[in-house]
Amino acid sequence: MNRKDIALALSLSLLVLALSLTISLEGLGPIVPRELRPLGASFVQNSYNPWNASLTSLSLNVVTAIVWDYRGLDTLYETLVLFASIAATLVVLRGYSELSGLGIKGLSDVSKSVTVVIAPLIVVYGIATAIHGHLTPGGGFQGGTIAVVAATLIIAVFSLEYLYRRGVSTSRLMLLRILGLLAIILTSLSLASIGMPSNVNAYILQNMAKDDSALSMPGVLFDTPLAGSIFLYNLFEFIIVFSGLTFAAMMLVLRESELESIKEAAEVYE
């Protein structure tokens, strides 16, 4: 890293600064305005408004309310994209085999004992982020990715062997993942399937009661807004993301001797 590089980088960033100052001279207003913008006011009015029962979704976190309640299909497809990308990993590494008994090396004793203490705390914090997603920033994906830290730490500090001995295998994680996806689909169809036989108006992905349909997910639990289907979606999304990303991490860190079987499988396909 010589002086010339750093000088060039500095001048480049100053150029970007000059350009952005030129663009922003018009003024965009303060970043944190003291009063609500009109768009924000309309979102707040339509997402958490207990006085107007036909508009509310009982979710204090407006972003989660919009993503899961108003644009639920959007997130359903995002989940499917994650599912498909992990299926692609499975296709690329097809024919792998899990070998147990390769021996544990791991890191030092200090790291091991700290990981034993910290991993349950991380998982608990991830679950809290996920199921509080309708009240505070967070949600299923975020909570799942926080909990995956614990899994990757265990893989790196203890080794894959430790996970195999605890009964965590890739096929079980895949099963958990498929069950989570099924649960999301069933939740989105549940109110419509209840309403259809009894001839009551109900919609797919419906959460709270609307003007023309009286069916509703459970809204309030002990004075806490539960936000019905948003809570369930967050929970199942947590399960999907946790098991899916742990699965991907386990596939990616396979040992050399386990990867040998992939070559043999590839020869069979050729």
Binding site: L107, L153, A156, V157, R255
Partner: peptide
């Protein structure tokens, strides 16, 4: 303030990856 803990946790995970890399081992071992 919600981003604080996620940042801390992932940076620690990064430490572990890098020390595993430097000790010339595979991450799965």
């Amino acid at each position: 303030a919600s981003g604080l803990i996620a940042l801390t946790l992932w940076i620690h995970a990064l430490d572990i990856y890098v020390s595993k890399y430097i000790e010339a081992r595979e991450i799965g071992e």
